[in-house]
């Protein structure tokens, strides 16, 4: 796993290096004027989009790591286990509803969930929480309302996201040894070493506790932030080289439109707090089901959140977490396109 991480890191650096070398080479050779301009222009586009995603997402990740640090310092295992149900199916249901208490989008929820696993939360509960909370939270509901009003789109988005999150959680609840789905470092100190083991020998008080929560948050920002950054770079790179128009030109038909909008959601990697506004731009030219697919699947899975999931779960589990919601979303969206006229 660490090797994969390093490979990704190296990939990012190599990409940067390639761009830099190309730029330099062109500049030195005095190259074809147009190529140089085009190249530096795409580098400019890449940098701007990358920094845009990062500046937008970093505060959410910070809020998530801060919440994680506070949970670590101020909650003990018994409290968490007392609050959450023992039954994994009930747990999945509760996990789906838990999002209302934590109004942060997909970047922030991952560190918090991992911390709650560490405190004994059942994997099924955590997975439902992870998938549901990017949509089922007050901020996202408010922004969807602002974009679509009290229409079927709002209710369908909330209802479908909740249903899919809880169903996937319940599927995972069937697992015989649920703890084995988690990467060991989800509840042990990290091998990467950036986490000082947050074992509290002597319970610190007052400022020492705050200091400890902040240190955990800082360490976790580095640990999770690298995935956010690699994910943002990949998204920015794809956005710079893949023409959206080609993708959107595919956009009709009850199935194809859904697939196109889902690919777009993954590619854009935009935060769930605002994706409703973004989706408005496609309302006229895309099917209702495909817009719903964009609004339901995008918050659950995109490039950066998948990389973050890999930090918490084993690869097989992440594969299921990505594909089960995908199939359910496609099913619901295509059904909507074929049977309901909105």
């Amino acid at each position: 796993m660490d090797r994969i991480l390093n490979a990704l890191g190296i990939l990012g650096l190599v990409l940067l290096a390639v761009v830099a070398v190309l730029l330099l080479q062109n500049w030195l050779a005095g190259g074809v004027q147009l190529d140089r301009a085009a190249l530096s222009s795409s580098f400019n586009t890449f940098t701007t989009i990358f920094l845009g995603i990062f500046i937008e997402a970093a505060p959410f990740l910070l809020l998530g790591t801060l919440a994680s640090g506070l949970v670590e310092v101020y909650f003990n295992k018994e409290a968490v286990q007392r609050i959450l149900p023992d039954n994994p199916f009930a747990g999945a249901l509760v996990g789906g509803l838990l999002g209302f208490t934590f109004p942060v989008c997909e970047c922030g929820v991952v560190p918090l969930t991992r911390r709650l696993f560490h405190k004994g939360m059942a994997p099924a509960t955590g997975i439902a929480f992870l998938l549901a909370s990017p949509v089922l939270n007050p901020i996202v509901i408010a922004s969807t309302y602002a974009a679509y009003g009290w229409g079927p789109m709002l209710w369908l988005r909330i209802g479908l996201s909740f249903t899919i999150a809880v169903s996937v959680g319940m599927i995972f609840a069937l697992h015989q040894q649920p703890r084995s789905m988690l990467r060991p470092l989800a509840f042990a100190p990290i091998s990467g070493g950036s986490i000082e083991l947050p074992v509290i020998q002597s319970r610190p008080t007052g400022w020492a506790r705050v200091q400890q929560a902040l240190t955990i948050a800082g360490d976790e920002f580095f640990e999770m932030g690298r995935y956010l950054i690699i994910g943002s770079m990949l998204a920015a790179l794809l956005q710079t080289i893949v023409p959206q128009s080609a993708l959107l030109a595919l956009g009709s038909g009850p199935l194809l439109s859904v697939l196109v909008m889902i690919v777009l959601a993954v590619l854009l990697s935009i935060c769930s707090t605002v994706d409703a506004f973004v989706s408005l731009a496609f309302v006229g030219s895309f099917t209702t089901g495909s817009i719903l697919g964009f609004l339901v699947y995008g918050p659950m899975v995109d490039i950066k959140s998948t990389l973050l999931y890999l930090q918490v779960f084993k690869r097989r589990t992440v594969l299921y977490m990505v594909t089960l919601p995908l199939l359910l979303t496609i099913l619901a969206a295509v059904f909507l396109n074929l049977n309901v006229a909105l």
Partner: peptide
């Protein structure tokens, strides 16, 4: 282990790009 070095390096990337590449809005190249 090596992990922490990598995360320092990767997390520093936006800083490097942010401070070294002059800030420019998207233009017709995009």
């Amino acid at each position: 282990s090596h992990g922490s070095r990598w995360s320092l390096l990767i997390v520093a990337l936006p800083l490097v790009l942010g401070f070294l590449v002059p800030a420019k809005p998207l233009d017709s190249g995009a």
